[in-house]
Design a protein around this nucleic acid. Sequence first.
DNA 1: CCACAAAAGGAATCGCGGTTCTGCTTACGG
DNA 2: CCGTAAGCAGAACCGCGATTCCTTTTGTGG
Lengths: 185, 185
Amino acid sequence: MPRLTDARKELRRTQIAEAAVRCFSRNGLERTSIADITAESGLSVGSIYAHYRNKADLVRAAARQMLHQRAGTIGEFAAADVPPDPDELLSRLTAAIDPVQARVAVQTWSEATTDPAVHDIVVDATDRVRAMLHDCITAWLVKVEHHEPPQAREHAAPIAHRVMALYQAELLYTALRSPSEETPS
Amino acid sequence: MPRLTDARKELRRTQIAEAAVRCFSRNGLERTSIADITAESGLSVGSIYAHYRNKADLVRAAARQMLHQRAGTIGEFAAADVPPDPDELLSRLTAAIDPVQARVAVQTWSEATTDPAVHDIVVDATDRVRAMLHDCITAWLVKVEHHEPPQAREHAAPIAHRVMALYQAELLYTALRSPSEETPS
DNA sequence: CCACAAAAGGAATCGCGGTTCTGCTTACGG
DNA sequence: CCGTAAGCAGAACCGCGATTCCTTTTGTGG
């Protein structure tokens, strides 16, 4: 079969990446073997290596996938037509945290400490989310608090920073709170 | 030599644990081999296994060591005779962050996601630090803001929670900011 | 000081896990 | 419809790294 159609190929890639994320969430990045991922995804070793150069590559893809997904759900909140105040924004973000994603997020931070590629992925995603929060809070200042747009953006920056920090701490708490959900062997 | 004197034995243990922390900071928990730690500590494989049952045991010890050390420096700030206001407290804490410790701290969070033993160590240390902040902020409310002690403790709780969260976020940023400082081969 | 058990050194072991290789299968382009 | 090259399965390989074992050294209690 001369090359899968691009859509189908992408489908397989995300199928693998999603399985990887589930495995990572259970056992951590380094303790999940390729074999674990084959079991979780229902595919085989060869198949995985047909789609990803190596494990590091797959880890990066999984990180990107999970961050992208999170950015998506955050984007929905941030783009609300009536911008919520910062406290409300934060509690909505907090409520939307998924334990599986939270665990992998924390593992990803750790990996970023060591692996430059993952580092860039994490920093980039973080900046992107912070920018969304910044926009959202600016909109709130303008529409609800009736600030003037130019100053509003300035005022919003430190608030966005704070909300981001508190959100990340909440991610950490979720990751630590949720039961480790051991492999059912 | 019938058993080292307890003090000497403890010295060796911390010598190893400190070397381990440095290695972890550079390469992450799973990517540092026992060989790396022997090189860093100047001791040999056999020696390490004489002091720690296995690698997991050493990881736990290193985590404890690093958390204990951090709790120590935080304790100094928190126990100041003139309690600083929360913002000041936070910026002092932030200023005292050591990049090496920050990286290992984040790695420890990740490990806690998976390893119940490390989980307990992390949660315990976190609670301990939060309690110190709680005390410090309560003192500030009482001495500087002239609250009544009983309500002060209640008021202090959410503030302590917030300061803790912002501190942890700052730890994360430091861990991500500092250059990965590769092994000089 | 001595004797001896414990600690340090380091080579050898052993299994696990990432990667590769070899055929079968199958989906796409014509 | 069909040929074919890509996808897929899974066995085999290979190296790395944790742990063990045995020898040598050394600190300590008597």
